[in-house]
Design a protein around this nucleic acid. Sequence first.
DNA 1: TCGAACCATCACATACATGTGAAGGTCAAG
DNA 2: CTTGACCTTCACATGTATGTGATGGTTCGA
Lengths: 124, 124
Amino acid sequence: MRIGELSERTGTARRLLRYYEEQGLIISARMANGYRDYDESSVDRVIQVRGLLDAGLPTRIIKQILPCLDKPRQIYFPDATPEMLETLEGERDRMTRRAECLLRNRDAITEYLDAVRTYDPAVS
Amino acid sequence: MRIGELSERTGTARRLLRYYEEQGLIISARMANGYRDYDESSVDRVIQVRGLLDAGLPTRIIKQILPCLDKPRQIYFPDATPEMLETLEGERDRMTRRAECLLRNRDAITEYLDAVRTYDPAVS
DNA sequence: TCGAACCATCACATACATGTGAAGGTCAAG
DNA sequence: CTTGACCTTCACATGTATGTGATGGTTCGA
């Protein structure tokens, strides 16, 4: 598919799709006329990337995480250097802390909303 | 305490503490000589703020969330407008999605690390 | 009383993700 | 064959969080 369709299906500006490609987060083939050509899997990939960006990860880190998500994983094993594995461990732990922070604060918001509605049921 | 101590205890640059104050995320009293004066609760507050920033929330949103976290919550109730509550609900849901995304990807990293180590136990 | 270590404000710079628009090529439908 | 809707690259602009440094006031110990 061309960039316009991918853009619509992922809700992502064309500009950003090109940017993600420049950052090595997605890839595209090229048609004879130079247009980018994406396959179906790009849709999920872009959604993944956006989710991680929204959760505060920079493209540099996302790029390192992506190989972990390619499902038929047989390939790309030998690339893993010890430093890379250490980075991944660190990021994994950081993601855990981030998620915990989000859930903790989310629960506080829920509590607050419940309290407000108990105090004044009219506002809900 | 003065800004230097708060900076050390939270691992946050002085510059940023002033910035957070400017954005309405923390407050400080002033000493006679103009120095900022923080109380103990500022430490937790700053750590909260940093966690949320790291998880991708902008200061604008954090500012709206913070009142939910003040523990003796009796106060500040009547401020809650319906629009504010709607915003909070939206952010709460967004935080849930973010956390899920993080955990999902974290698990994929863990799986990957396990697989790599099964393949080549030497690298761990 | 001098110097070091704090503090203040202000301003400019940077990294990153994103917006926007110019200048031009491709292609299909009228 | 032209128009409009795509696509390309390039470049400049923006917002947000952060870094860095200048300039000057305060405090405290040698």
